[in-house]
Computed example of a mutant assay.
Amino acid sequence: MNTAALPRWVVAVAVVGGLFLVLPLVAMALRVDWPRFVPLVTSDSARAALLLSLRTSLSATAVCVVVGVPMALVLARTSFRGQRLVRSLVLLPLVLPPVVGGIALLYTFGRRGLLGSSFSALGIDIAFSTTAVVMSQAFVALPFLVLSLEGALRSVGTRYEAVGATLGAGRWTVLRRITLPLVLPGLVSGAVLSFARALGEFGATLTFAGSLEGTTRTLPLEIYLQRETDPDAAVALSLILVVVAIAVVGVAHRVRPLDRLAVTAAGTPRRRAPEAVR
């Protein structure tokens, strides 16, 4: 590692910051009861919570992709009055306490909520169901995808899109054959980060969906409950969640960097871009 260009105090502070992040994980790993690790993480409640977390997180990520891609396109490729306010509202879940988000969802989709009362009259109850878990996770994870994809769209610019339009390609063709392939790394990275955020969601899920084993009790909720009754099980399950999170973040960082993609898009034109609209 070459640190010649940096003052020594900068490196020292960076090391302290890294230790601040790493040491708690090391301490947790040292606290694990390794002889009982496998039985602790393979109990019926633990397996049910893990499978539910993975299933709902994947569903929430799919919701984020379906809804977030159009949102990012509108924010990055259009201009309208109040756009800054809309962007602030889209990113609001990033700074809101998750419990506040859960309360907002409850008073919107609960049985006596703004929309939930109408759904309840039709025999559809959303709150305290698996659907509520997916909605809670999607609510807190959606800004990660929108933010990542909007940044990618602004980085690649509109050069190839303009070329496609001048060659006679329609808006849908330009979007499908030029825009989305150019920002695919940003889309994948945003989806992976959204999945990671959904997997670790706790506050909004507990408030809006409750903690029903096999139905709404995700792995973070199971860890919280086990902390009171069996601390060893809580530590073991926490380690599983940490390992999964590290793997997810590793996948996100293996995606081709956006700055390199932007240079490619803005530099020497490739033949493939014009051919894509034929």
Rank of each mutant, 00 (worst) to 15 (best):
A104G: 03
L30M: 04
A48P: 12
I223K: 05
P97E: 10
F208A: 03
F109P: 00
A165R: 12
L52R: 12
N2F: 11
G186R: 10
G18W: 14
L51E: 12
R171P: 13
A72D: 07
A49T: 09
P231F: 04
G168K: 06
W172R: 15
E201S: 13
V32P: 07
A233Q: 11
F109D: 00
V242E: 12
F202A: 13
V38W: 13
S148L: 03
L114R: 01
I126K: 00
V277W: 02
A60G: 07
Q137N: 07
R8N: 04
L19D: 02
R154H: 09
P274Q: 07
L91C: 02
A152I: 06
L149I: 12
V277Y: 01
L225Q: 08
A138H: 04
V192A: 03
G250K: 04
L6R: 14
T173L: 04
V192N: 03
L219W: 15
L114V: 00
L258T: 03
R47K: 14
A196R: 09
S59N: 03
A273D: 12
A273C: 06
F208L: 06
S53D: 08
T166H: 14
L167M: 15
A132V: 08
L75G: 04
T216L: 14
A245Q: 07
R81P: 01
G170Q: 03
S238N: 09
V163F: 05
A121Y: 03
V277M: 04
F144C: 03
G186M: 13
P98W: 12
A141M: 12
A62C: 09
L106A: 05
P24M: 06
Q137H: 10
E150P: 05
D44W: 12
T61K: 00
G82F: 01
P220T: 11
S43M: 01
L94G: 08
L221I: 15
F208H: 09
L167K: 01
A247M: 14
R8D: 08
L258N: 03
P98N: 13
L30I: 01
R111A: 00
A252M: 04
A276H: 08
T173S: 11
A165H: 06
L54A: 15
L115F: 01
R270D: 13
V66Y: 05
A273Y: 13
V248D: 01
T218W: 11
L187H: 13
P143T: 06
V263F: 13
S129P: 04
L122R: 08
R87Q: 05
L85S: 04
A266G: 12
P231I: 01
A14D: 07
R272L: 12
F208G: 05
L180Y: 15
V26G: 03
L149S: 07
G110W: 01
L149A: 10
S43Q: 00
L153V: 14
L261D: 12
P231N: 02
R36I: 02
S189Y: 01
T215D: 15
R154F: 05
A165I: 11
V133F: 11
R256Q: 11
G18V: 15
S120D: 05
R154P: 01
V10Q: 12
L50T: 11
R154V: 09
G168Q: 07
L180N: 15
T3H: 11
D259P: 05
L145H: 08
S88H: 03
L106C: 02
A138V: 00
L149R: 03
